[in-house]
Design a protein around this nucleic acid. Sequence first.
RNA 1: GGUACCAUGGCCGAGAGGUUAGGCAUCGGUCUGCAAAACCGCGUACAUCGGUUCGAAUCCGGUUGGUACCUCCA
Length: 497
Amino acid sequence: MSALLIYNSYTRQKEAFTPITPGHVGLYVCGPTVSGESHLGHARPYITFDVVNRYLQYLGYKVRYVRNITDAGHFEEEGREAEDKVAKKAILEMLEPMELVHKYTSLFHWGMRRFNTLEPSIEPTATGHIIEQIEMIKKIIAAGYAYEVNGSVYFDVKKYNDHYPYGKLSGRILEDLLETSRDLDGQDEKREKVDFALWKSAPPEHIMRWPSPWGEGFPGWHIECSAMSSKYLGKQFDIHGGGMDLQFPHHESEIAQSTIAHGCTPVNYWMHNNMITINGRKMGKSYNNVIKLTELFSGDHELLEQAYHPMVIRFYILTTHYRSTLDFSNEALQAAKKALKRLWDAYEVLQKLEDNGAATASYPELDKKVRDFCAACHTDMNDDFNTAKVIANLFELAPVINSIRQGQVPAGAISSDTLATLKTTFHSFMETILGLQPLKQEDTGKLDGVLQLVIAMRKDARTRKDYATSDKIRDTLGAIGIQLKDEKDGSVSYSLS
RNA sequence: GGUACCAUGGCCGAGAGGUUAGGCAUCGGUCUGCAAAACCGCGUACAUCGGUUCGAAUCCGGUUGGUACCUCCA
């Protein structure tokens, strides 16, 4: 059995995964800012790390998965007008900040549930950890790596860089940053442009504000993750995940803050998922090309040809490795939908295959093929969570399953043991690890009763060779999304789409 | 401007010095009353120009094109 390899953004190579505490994993993922509706772009990290979480659990680890909710809002840095994103939106919509935060948090949870992501163990909010953040800032000031100006506190990046490798995570060199940072208007209280805020003094109109040793204000962008991750996972923990766009400056700053406050580097393995693009462009608010989750599921968006089931989105995301960009298009999603249906159908067929009782396989080569691809699922998953390859392996196995079912290959072609392995492999990867679910609605039982009647009537018609009637039944059902399948043995099954 | 990364068959998308990726679509066949589904068969693709090598899509360099980060961002 191969060992789990994780591509560590910090060292830029795949490394064997060894947790700090044997049998346990601390996993932190940067959560959403709940100042607006979640969109397709947000789906990627949460689905990616949901699979990471699921797989670690599958491997037997006890995982503490922490994913924060950023509800304090953040301001534009670098001299632009300090404004709280949450507060700004709140005025526009005439809502209380808390009301707004609650609304979008609920929507986010709704989306995550539809994607069948497991809930994190802890979902801490930034506003609920102001004290922890203030305490951490105090430590950094005491250590001499932060300074106060007019009620705001900034981290001294230049000094930090004299002793620690600032920029290592994101591959940046401080000198370059000092030279190339753009000049932005406004007063700059910071000693250097690269310094970042730990605490920001709140102007009078700012709604969200808290008392602090430096006056009324609000925490800087990066400090919440450092404060909350260390509180729940310890000063050093195993895996920190998030989108690639957070690598700099957010994660870089997290490392700097935590290193000074806690005297050690915070994270052993940094994982970054790549972006979802649309027409080759990153999906983001600034590009005005976002598709909200609600629009995606309802199909109500000019770029969408139809509504897409959450499982299709989940499957589509998982058919690409998490470190590659993923380009969105209707065509690609259509393909994903069909592919998922075929794979899931094969999985259902597999569940119905009865144990053939064959001690040895009559088709040894096929038997070996099945075993090899089942084994490959584990190896590929261990290779930096290569879900794309895992899915390809499952697709290799689908024809084998269908062939056995339809008798193109005899039941004893693969041994009883191999069939059992095939079943557990599909179950583990499809449901437990990839977290997939069937596309069809839950059958109410009543619909099934009706369909059985209609199927029986069609069967009668066919016996009478009344094909006009039988075809009418089939085609009409097909038109409303119920597809009949005439099986080899004369039975008829159906699938809903 | 600085720093990275990426360019794969009609489309999407793995892989990574010599061995099948996979999916979707198309086409042919089997099955079928006809279909659908399923099964079988078919694609010798890796931007371009050089170089290294017995051998490169995979390594090195140049070119072109694209993207991301440097500013809120998943």
